[in-house]
Amino acid sequence: MKTIAVSATEKSLDSPVDLRFGRAKYFVIVDPETMDWEALDNTPNINAAHGAGIQAARLVAENRVKTVLTGNCGPNAFETLQAAGIQVATNVNSTVRQAIERFKRGEISFAQSSNVKKHWG
């Protein structure tokens, strides 16, 4: 099961993590057991006037992930992810692959609240 979504600037496991959640280019969703992955296209959200974080949260929720690893996550996105039962780790600053490996080693701590204000990115 592809249970982890990582915001990414490219469609690749070796892509850098996109530091913006709502306006990330892609979400690379990964099965941590097999490292099977696919990329979800979030580009329609990049230029959204408002609600980008909420829509991005919906996109990953619809793909039934349980965990989001990203750089920064604003309050509306965070609230939506929480309501969908998805745990969020912020300040992740590496490649997608490294982030997944750190997650598997239990080195990632999860956020209790958003780490940036509205309209941050």
Binding site: H50, G51, I54, R58, N76, E79, T80, A83, A84, G85
Partner: peptide, 18 residues
């Protein structure tokens, strides 16, 4: 069109300011 109402699997979120 404004992400003001967000239906999820078990709940519905409303963002009045949107």
């Amino acid at each position: 069109q404004f992400s003001a109402i967000v239906p999820l699997e078990q709940t519905v979120l409303i963002f009045p300011e949107m």
